[in-house]
Design a protein around this nucleic acid. Structure first.
Length: 188
DNA sequence: GCCAGGATGTTA
DNA sequence: AACATCCTGGCG
């Protein structure tokens, strides 16, 4: 399976978010299947961090396409994004849900008592299950001994509005595998 | 099953 | 003050 290269992330964030569904995501001792994502667009999307965080604008400027943008949400949960830098549009893809493929014992150990299909069924849950935290901020996911993303089986993703935001709530920039048991919420 | 509420810290 | 969340407990 081909490893995603920087070319994949030098397009528009919505295309990247859609096409990441079904891809295999490898981080240290775990490999998972991406089943839910959201796109955020730095240009004309008021929900994107670049809209209200100068530090996010600086990150887009300084970092490379395919780098991890990780931040703490509600003071509790780490949320994982991939930086997209297209010729016209930049932004982020938020990972919202994953299914375990390899290393499921490690994921269970990090989330004791949680059923397997729930281990990564949410953006805060998946970072906990994978052991991703603020120290992953800025790491490139273009492929290394430590991490990488490869193309997986492509199912046609379903699409809906994004979760948990108060701005630009109408944009249909949430994508998911319709057959996955690990989606964070129903699509609307 | 649904809903309300609280934890918690970083940014601005 | 807001926030790209999650878990618990109350109620049926």
């Amino acid at each position: 399976m081909p490893e995603l290269d920087q070319g994949f992330f030098t397009r528009d964030p919505v295309s990247c978010a859609s096409e990441l569904i079904g891809c295999h995501f490898r981080w240290r001792d775990c490999t998972v299947r991406i089943v839910e994502t959201e796109a955020y667009d730095s240009r004309d999307d008021p929900a994107c961090h670049t809209w209200f965080r100068p530090s996010a604008r600086a990150f887009v400027e300084a970092q490379q396409a395919g780098d991890a943008y990780v931040y703490l949400n509600y003071g509790v949960h780490w949320l994982f994004n991939l930086l997209v830098k297209g010729p016209r549009r930049s932004g982020f893809v938020l990972l919202r849900a994953i299914e375990p493929l390899l290393g499921i014992e490690r994921m269970r150990a990090r989330r004791p008592g949680v059923p397997d299909h729930q281990l990564g069924a949410g953006p805060g849950k998946l970072t906990r299950a994978l052991g991703i935290d603020g120290s992953t901020h800025g790491v490139t996911f273009l492929g290394s001994h430590e991490c990488g993303i490869t193309l997986g089986k492509s199912t046609t993703p379903i699409c809906g509005t994004r979760i948990g935001i108060s701005q630009a709530t109408h944009l249909p920039w949430r994508f998911g595998d319709p057959n996955s048991p690990a989606l964070s919420r129903k699509f609307t």
